[in-house]
């Protein structure tokens, strides 16, 4: 099984600790003045959904988790269940709202995502880095205001809300960075 060195640690890495798969949800590299490098990790247990905090020193390694990643797409939501389809086999998979987490804001019909399977059960998804979403509701901005550092909330087609510049109008399509949840730009339309 592959191993990851501390220098390869990053958000999204799937690792095996004490026989269970975890995903790194935060990785903070810390190095005081002349001190040793510390890799402070927050890890989500992919089966039990619990969060663990662990700190590693440079040079340590972690095993990669025994998980499979497949290309899938989002189909629809039914109450608290999100339904996805494997692009190759057309097999459908269900994830709970808890498993999807904050990523529900990006899920529009047909969105290509990558899905993690552990023992053939879906346990997590990751959306593309950038997602284009239609603005369905937002306050009109002051006319001629083109400033980009002043923001207002805008609701998009998925029901999610994002901070956008004042000049964004209903009907605009905006590009969002899913890694940070921040607005990147308006897509010409």
């Amino acid at each position: 099984m592959a191993t990851y060195k501390t220098s390869e640690f990053k958000k999204g890495l799937k690792v095996q600790i004490d026989g269970e798969p975890y995903i790194m949800i935060e990785m903070n590299f810390r190095k005081p003045g002349k001190g040793a490098a510390l890799y402070e990790c927050r890890l989500r247990n992919l089966i039990r959904n619990t969060i663990a905090s662990k700190t590693y020193r440079g040079g340590e390694t972690l095993e990669s988790a025994d998980v499979e990643e497949i290309a899938a797409q989002y189909l629809y939501r039914q109450a608290d269940t999100f339904v996805f389809m494997d692009n190759k086999t057309f097999e459908q998979y269900e994830l709970s709202a808890e498993q999807v987490g904050d990523d529900w804001k990006y899920l529009k019909e047909g969105l290509p995502i990558s899905m993690v399977l552990y023992n053939n059960n879906p346990i997590a998804i990751s959306p593309p880095n950038h997602v284009e979403l239609l603005v369905t509701e937002c306050e009109p901005g002051a006319k001629g205001d083109t400033a980009t550092n002043v923001t207002k909330p805008a609701k998009v087609e998925t029901g999610g809300e994002f901070a956008v510049p004042i000049f964004i109008k209903e009907g605009n399509v905006i590009r969002i960075d899913t890694r940070t949840g921040s607005y990147i730009e308006r897509v010409n339309n």
Partner: peptide, 26 residues
């Protein structure tokens, strides 16, 4: 309650000082 790395060199004062500095003082 600091998350202590498993391979801390135990008797090394400077390494402990650096860990405390990084996590609690800085």
């Amino acid at each position: 309650g600091i998350a202590i790395p498993s391979d801390m060199p135990c008797g090394d004062r400077d390494e402990w000082l650096n860990l405390l500095l990084a996590t609690l003082v800085e």
